[in-house]
Design a protein around this nucleic acid. Structure first.
Lengths: 245, 245
DNA sequence: CGAAGGCTTTGACACAGATCAATGCGGGAC
DNA sequence: GTCCCGCATTGATCTGTGTCAAAGCCTTCG
């Protein structure tokens, strides 16, 4: 992961290779709605930026002057209450588009979990681009609709599932979202801390830890290392996640 | 309300008045993206339907062959777990567009709270219409983005707020969404039952009831009748909803 | 009018998960 | 190696909210 980020950034506005054409995130992103021939236009308005792990690169409440497209690494999105209580609303990775909200301030914050690289688009320039490429707007609508479905699923989890059910749901989600290539999907990495998991599931660190221990005791999972995990009984985990027992 | 619904439906595919042109929901809806001159096309593909209070008119998991646009009444959207636990993901009213999800089955169910009237569009016909009116697609994207923001706010509520904070947030939301005309915004109606409120806030009926009683005791609200409510101390309610104390 | 049934309120008690408090562990600096 | 230091685990206890149970109170309907 770190080695991928260590490569020099190849954005070069004054000619040379078109960075968007060689972007490895393009296939996962709404950018793929822009035809190859027009990628220069996309590249012209994209500002590539990097954020080290732990850096907050979107601040809830700040003026929302830009949109973001993650091209490397993973980040967490969250909202805070004044006393510090935190709800993580999602973990996002390569290809994820951020900042859709039609509002003048960001509705959430974003913090890099791993070193992150992203393209930043100004609101007005993206607007113009979208007007010229309605297909991209269609893709954005698709993406938004899918996120809405995921958000409703998460509301069900937060409002009605028990701690065990939440963990089961979360682990299955992570196993599905695991790095697209490599890893058998039964074995995968959790790039986030227990605290992040707790804030995503509406629990405390201790409950997450205890629940994982219990799932391990029941032979549903195996905790290979602190952030590597193996699913032993996929079927039982699915039942649990679905609310049976 | 009932009298409004008792009016005859004026949809008449073989000529006569254009029903969409005279639709009172149009101003609140994405339909307003269709220019007046083309409303006939919209009317041609809309099937007007009514559902009495209590009727479930969208079933989670069923093939998603249609999209819906509410033109009268209020409905609740929800997801169920196999053992009956229910999470209400939202209350929707006039102008609300349902069924965005890019999936072949519905991700949630919808049930009328009051008598509801809606326009139903088949997936393919709406697709064609959207291709011809990109402005409507833009409006849909806006709507979806706003719903996403609301969904994230609800995740914060469900994952991190206390019962009192949830009720305060809910009451303020309802006072804002109260019927656009009439009512002073301090006084408003709750068209849903305590059970619905509980399932929306991730609580039980008893906790909702007790918490309302307590807020009443603290003179933050007044419960005029079972489903009519008056906000006495808006400021204190805002603080509570925001997580202060 | 009075009976009936559904919704709401109130009370007593239970429990899942939070809080408080050690202790354990693993990876980086040197 | 070994000293840190942050994260994770485990234990003991507490508590907000759930559960169970019993009234209360509208609204409908005969």
């Amino acid at each position: 992961m770190a080695s991928r980020l260590a490569r020099p950034i190849i954005l070069d506005p004054h000619g040379g290779v078109d960075p968007c054409a060689s972007c490895e995130a393009r296939q996962f992103s709404v950018c793929n709605a822009i035809p190859d021939a027009d990628l220069v236009r996309l590249a012209a308005i994209a500002v590539v930026t990097e954020a080290p792990a732990g850096r907050t690169f979107i601040d809830e409440g700040e003026p929302a002057d830009g949109f973001f497209n993650i091209t490397a690494g993973r980040a967490k999105l969250f909202k805070l209450l004044p006393d510090g209580r935190r709800q993580i609303t999602g973990f996002v990775g390569v290809g994820h588009f951020l900042g859709l909200a039609v509002s003048d301030t960001y509705a959430f914050s974003a913090e890099a979990i791993e070193p992150v690289r992203y393209c930043r688009f100004s609101r007005s320039k993206l607007r113009t681009l979208l007007d010229d490429f309605p297909l991209m707007e269609k893709r954005l609508l698709e993406v938004a609709a899918n996120e809405l479905v995921a958000a409703q699923e998460q509301m069900l989890l937060l409002g009605r599932k028990t701690a065990r059910e939440r963990l089961a749901s979360f682990l299955l989600l992570q196993s599905r979202q695991g790095l697209p290539c490599g890893h058998s999907r039964r074995r995968f990495t959790l790039p986030m801390t227990r605290g992040d998991i707790a804030d995503y599931l509406g629990l405390t660190i201790e409950t997450v830890s205890r629940t994982l221990t219990r799932l391990r005791g029941e032979r549903l999972i195996e905790v290979v290392s602190q952030n590597e995990l193996l699913i032993l009984n996929h079927h039982a985990l699915e039942s649990l996640a679905g609310g049976l027992t």
